[in-house]
Simulated assay, not measured.
Amino acid sequence: MVTKDLGMDRRVRRTKRLLKYALITLMNEKSYEQITVTDIVEHADYNRATFYRHYNQKADLIKEIITDQTNGLIQAFKVPYKKNNYIHLNALAPSEIVIFNYIIENKYFYALWREFEAIPGFYETFLQSITRFFKQDINLITPYHDGLDNNMYTSFYAYGILGIILDWIKNDFEQSPDYMAKQLCKIINYYPAESFITGNT
C-alpha cells in the first residue's frame, strides 16, 4: 500500500511538473491571458480531465508556480545561514551566497518576470511572501542605534535586497552571479547589522 501511494505521489508530481513547464513554455510565445487550459494540456500531452484533477482553473496553476519559486528563493537565501549555523548577516562570504545561482538555475521562470508582472496580483504576492520571510524569520539586531525600530530596519534590508535582485533580473542578468554576490556583501557591510534566522523557519 505504501509503495502504491509513493508511486501515485510520483505520478502527481510528474504531472504537475509537466503542466507547469507547459504553461511557462507557452508564456514565451504569448501572454498569460491568451493561454487557455486547452493550450496547456495539449502542450503537456494530457487531457483536460487530468488538468482539472489537480487544479480548478489556470490561476491555480500559476499560483502554485509562483509559490514554488518564492519558497525556492527563500530556501536559497537560507543556505549560508544553515551552513554556518546561522551566523550574522554581515559575516557571510560572497562564495556562500547562492541566491543568485538559484535564480540563474531557474532562469526559465525569472526571464519571464515582465510577463508575470502583467498577471494580476503577482508582484504583490511575490514581494509580500519575501518580505514576510524577512520580517518573521530574519531578526536584525541593531546595536549601533538605540531606539531604532527593528521592524522598519528589517523592511529596509528586505526591500533593499529585493531591489537588487529585481534590478538584476530586469536587466537580463547582465552581471554574473559571482559579481552580484560580491556586491551584495559589500552593500550589507556598508550598512552593518547583525542578524539570525529565528525558530519560525
Results as ranks from 00 to 15, higher is better:
residue 58 K to A: 01
residue 92 L to H: 02
residue 154 T to D: 01
residue 106 N to M: 05
residue 2 V to I: 15
residue 90 N to W: 13
residue 111 A to L: 14
residue 7 G to F: 10
residue 82 K to I: 10
residue 173 F to T: 02
residue 156 F to V: 08
residue 73 L to M: 06
residue 136 Q to S: 13
residue 159 Y to Q: 02
residue 143 P to W: 04
residue 66 I to L: 07
residue 126 F to G: 01
residue 111 A to I: 10
residue 126 F to K: 00
residue 31 S to E: 10
residue 147 G to E: 00
residue 167 D to C: 12
residue 34 Q to D: 12
residue 8 M to S: 15
residue 141 I to H: 08
residue 109 F to M: 04
residue 42 E to C: 09
residue 178 D to V: 14
residue 62 I to R: 04
residue 147 G to H: 04
residue 35 I to G: 02
residue 21 Y to L: 15
residue 167 D to M: 12
residue 137 D to P: 01
residue 136 Q to C: 14
residue 15 T to M: 10
residue 181 A to Q: 04
residue 77 F to A: 03
residue 80 P to M: 02
residue 172 D to Q: 07
residue 174 E to L: 15
residue 187 I to Q: 09
residue 190 Y to D: 14
residue 34 Q to I: 10
residue 29 E to P: 05
residue 164 I to E: 07
residue 175 Q to L: 14
residue 198 T to G: 05
residue 13 R to Y: 09
residue 158 A to D: 01
residue 75 Q to D: 10
residue 48 R to P: 07
residue 104 I to V: 11
residue 151 N to I: 15
residue 64 E to C: 04
residue 149 D to K: 00
residue 60 D to T: 05
residue 38 T to H: 12
residue 34 Q to H: 12
residue 77 F to Q: 01
residue 110 Y to W: 06
residue 50 T to R: 07
residue 106 N to P: 06
residue 32 Y to G: 05
residue 172 D to A: 06
residue 138 I to G: 00
residue 191 Y to H: 14
residue 22 A to C: 07
residue 46 Y to V: 02
residue 14 R to G: 09
residue 128 Q to P: 09
residue 117 E to I: 06
residue 145 H to C: 14
residue 14 R to A: 15
residue 61 L to G: 00
